[in-house]
Amino acid sequence: MPLKRRQIAWRAAQDLADGAYVNLGIGLPTLVSDFLPADREIVLHSENGVLGVGPAPGDNEVDWDLINAGKQPITLVTGGSYVHHTDSFLIIRGGHLDLALLGAFEVSEKGDLANWTTDDPGFPPGVGGAMDLAVGAKEIRVLVEHTTRAGAPRIRRQCGYPLTAAAVVRRIYTDLAVIDVTAAGLVVRELVDDLDFPALQAKTEATLRQAPDMKALRAPPV
């Protein structure tokens, strides 16, 4: 069974290291905050100047002065702090974040990331903090559905959509697999149970290799 969106987020959360400073992009990556491992202290950064993003507030606790990059109300964890925008992007661009988990339209076999515009003429483009994050964090990982709704592969030889940054993605979490971007190409570390490797390759434009110790990709029902 392919993972559901929340399960992709759960899987990505399992790899977060104790003590890591992490930025979660809007969309699918934002769900990761629901699954932070309880035994680790992980500090979530939000581009609009929040270090220490906490869980969503209860209905009576919403404070519209405290929001995340997706403009939704959040809370601050004990120990959290605020910075202004220029310092927030200094944190992003200056290599102070250990990791950014980002969404994508497409990822290439070289780790190129396309996640800011599809060039739809009816749709004004918006870049937000995507380009700053993509070149600034120490490591970039992407959470993405393996194919579009129409079944077109999102993991490609080259991105068809305009790039956000070239050769930055190190790991890709999809509903079907966990894939590392390596100097030797794309290596599948984990694959869902009821799909064999050739079937995964058929849903992927770029050439995949199977890790010698490839594991099953499983997530609890979350």
Partner: peptide
């Protein structure tokens, strides 16, 4: 890009003539 808007303004505020940024390269 968001951080470039704010850094360009900071640059003006600080009396500087510009800066080199890796953001958007490529």
């Amino acid at each position: 890009p968001q951080g470039i808007i704010s850094e360009r303004m900071r640059c003006a505020a600080a009396g500087l003539g510009g800066f080199y940024s890796p953001v958007s390269v490529g």
